[in-house]
Amino acid sequence: MPISGLILTLCSDSKAAQSAILKCHEDPRIEVGEFVGLRRCPITLTTQSQEEDKACWQALQADPGIDHVDVACVFFDDDQADDSPKQATVDDSDSTLAQAQ
């Protein structure tokens, strides 16, 4: 279960920025911290899986009210590594690497 500390930099359009922060407040996975200046806002993000964590991060980055997302920390001690990506197609016919693994 990833737990991360992020910093949102909100855009200069106050309406869009407010809307972004409202969405964060409504999302149970996000805890909104105290603003630093007018546009920088620390948050924590707690998700059930790494996939959800990433989807959430991407949604934040894509929000028109958010200019930039920085990462301060992440605790991922419960995370599991992914399955291996598919291997290359170059010279596949000669490869028996998978057998050796």
Binding site: I3, G5, C41, P42, C73
Partner: peptide, 15 residues
């Protein structure tokens, strides 16, 4: 605990 640490770390970095 980790969440509180994450918030403290993010707040400090934002400053």
């Amino acid at each position: 605990f980790l969440k509180s640490v994450a918030m403290a770390t993010a707040t400090a970095a934002a400053h």
